[in-house]
Amino acid sequence: MKICEIQKLLNATLLCGEEALEHDVFSACCSDMMSDVLAYVKDQGVLITGLINPQVIRTASMMDMVCVVFVRSKAPTEEMIELAEACGIVLMKSDMRAYEACGHLYTSGLRGNAGKIHG
């Protein structure tokens, strides 16, 4: 799925990273716990979260993720946007709840690709 399709499906406002909107992503994950993102994410390119602090961007960058979607109308700070620009990460925000946003993306073909989580 192209990143611009995510923006459309979630009716999201783009905050930075316009140049990457045509890039393809293949799977996503949703969490407010960066500990779990660091421990469980494999190749998911998109992070859906309601957490706001700079560690969200650094975590995404460490995991080579390319797009972060902030849900529940949460807006990242200017510092976070600058950090994302420096890391080449697309940021957008949506009014949807996390569950709803994930449902839209999942049914449109963006899967979780989680593999096995336990053990």
């Binding site: 407010d32 716990m33 500990s35 779990d36 660091l38 421990a39 957490l51 602090n53 560690q55 969200v56």
Partner: peptide, 14 residues
């Protein structure tokens, strides 16, 4: 710390 997104006890094993 949990409200900041950390503290799941996964860091050292990771």
């Amino acid at each position: 710390i949990r409200s900041l997104g950390f503290g799941a006890g996964m860091g050292l094993p990771n």
